[in-house]
Amino acid sequence: MSDFVETVARRAGVDGEQAGEILARHGVRESGVLPRPHQLLIKSLAFTGEKNGKSTGRVDFSWGLGPGLWGVTADNLRGKSSILEIIWWCLRGTGALQADVRKWIHHVRLDAQVDDEPFTVRIDNTGEQLTGTLAVGVQQHVTSFADETEFASIMGAFMMDRLGLEFLRGWRKDSPARSDTDSDSRDGQVVVTSWPAFSHALLCRNRESDALLGETAGGGTMVSLL
């Protein structure tokens, strides 16, 4: 029995064998080797669409990037955050893109790479249907998605694997109100932290937000991850 399992058993008030079985069942293990760092590089972003409302007209945006530090500037106060949110949307498979902006975006293409492996995300957002593909590698191994749920699942699996991240399992206690109304329920639930949570480290909010990194201010999982 390792010192890790022995410590968990002692704090949980159970024997070592039982602690080891529970940890193994939930995929919790001790790691003595630090993972190697990975590099995520955005190479280009392009999107097209048709604006309507207060401002109208066709949008055809293209931006080529590469290594180094890049900034987004404009003569007015509109559009800069949307560009960054679209990049985040492509990398996560889900995002907080404003509803009015997302409505007029029809096609998006993001070219990027993790270490030396290129990948391309394509989104077709026509009408009420969102479809697209993730193409990986020089040989362009393509995986298609037909809705937002599939998009988030595909990007989550890809990024977790390529960045060498592991799912984190924790326990969230229920509020007293919930426990009182359901006497048959346990006092909490298992929470699995995956790519949507890790991806908050990619986002630096503006001065109007309470959180410098990600979307959540204060303690908890987000702050611990960052």
Rank of each mutant, 00 (worst) to 15 (best):
D3R: 08
D3P: 00
F4N: 04
E6Y: 02
V8S: 00
A9K: 02
A12K: 02
G16A: 10
G16R: 13
E17D: 05
A19M: 01
A19H: 10
G20Y: 02
G20F: 03
G27Y: 12
V28M: 11
R29G: 01
E30K: 13
E30T: 07
G32V: 09
L34S: 11
L34Y: 06
L34G: 00
Q39H: 12
L41Q: 13
L41I: 05
A46E: 15
F61D: 03
W63K: 09
W63F: 15
G64P: 13
L65P: 07
G66C: 05
G66Y: 12
P67G: 12
T73F: 14
A74V: 03
N76G: 10
S81Y: 03
S82P: 03
R92Q: 13
R102P: 00
K103V: 01
W104Q: 08
V108I: 14
R109G: 02
A112H: 09
Q113E: 10
V114S: 01
E117Y: 07
E117A: 11
E117G: 01
P118T: 02
V121E: 11
I123M: 12
N125H: 11
T126Y: 01
L130R: 15
T133L: 08
L134Y: 06
A135E: 12
V136S: 06
Q140V: 00
F145C: 06
F145I: 05
I154Q: 04
F158S: 04
M160Q: 15
M160E: 15
L163W: 13
G164M: 07
P176W: 13
T181D: 06
D184F: 14
S185E: 10
R186H: 07
D187E: 10
Q189T: 13
V191C: 13
V192P: 01
P196F: 03
P196M: 07
A197H: 14
L203T: 01
L203R: 14
A211R: 03
G218V: 09
